[in-house]
């Protein structure tokens, strides 16, 4: 069972309120950009090869009152599944990690992955000790389950089983520094943190 990726993300966008979002390379960034056009509350972390969720964890650690959503692609995730042990260790109550499971490398013409799409990521997360693990294979499941994801909102890990997109979408049209300053200024303005003029 798998959802259409656009329908899945559209539902998350509908539920998107004040969360800060970090997207990973390829389809997740492209789809979030297509559906929202957002340039401030989203950090489009392109091509980090597995580091989107830990980047998001750093934000969640620094700003405990910010709720942070992180999106990983399954291709990136498989490069560094041990990230889950760090997320467990951090135990951040304000971080939700969505794993976009489409079984292909969406950023590279949907070339197949080493596991042929057979990995049970939810089981992997549980084995790493994460307590709040979810797996959504249909839009109905996602609609029913997101209340619980948001309620626990603590080291939450949710697998989104989606179909391959079937093609690439336009990338967010921002270079790195523009993304950095738009996102950082938003955090400074919204949460009162000092980022760019900090003494550190």
């Amino acid at each position: 069972m798998a959802m259409a990726m656009e329908a899945c993300f559209a539902h998350l966008v509908e539920r998107w309120t004040d969360q800060v979002v970090v997207t990973s390379a390829g389809n997740a960034s492209e789809m979030w950009w297509k559906l929202t056009g957002e340039t401030e509350r989203v950090f489009y972390l392109e091509a980090s090869m597995s580091l989107a969720s830990l980047f998001a964890a750093g934000i969640a650690y620094g700003i405990p009152r910010a709720n942070v959503w992180a999106f990983s692609g399954d291709g990136a995730f498989l490069m560094n599944p041990g990230m889950l042990t760090v997320e467990r260790r951090l135990g951040l109550p304000n971080l939700t990690h969505f794993l976009v499971d489409n079984g292909v490398y969406g950023a590279t013409f949907e070339v197949g992955m080493s596991d042929a799409g057979e990995t049970d990521y939810a089981a992997l997360a549980r084995a790493c000790g994460l307590r709040n693990v979810f797996r959504f294979g249909t839009l109905a499941d996602l609609r029913d389950g997101m209340d619980e994801v948001e309620r626990v909102n603590g080291e939450a890990f949710a697998v989104l089983e989606v179909e391959p997109l079937g093609g690439a979408l336009p990338d967010p049209p921002m270079d790195g520094p523009e993304c950095k300053f738009r996102f950082g200024r938003y955090l400074e303005r919204t949460y009162g943190v000092r980022i760019f003029d900090a003494r550190v």
Partner: peptide
């Protein structure tokens, strides 16, 4: 952390958390 790259990701994010 589980590998050094994870430290890069975590610390880079912490910058945006003002830490």
């Amino acid at each position: 952390v589980n590998r050094e790259e994870s430290a890069v990701g975590l610390c880079s994010g912490a910058f945006f958390g003002g830490r």
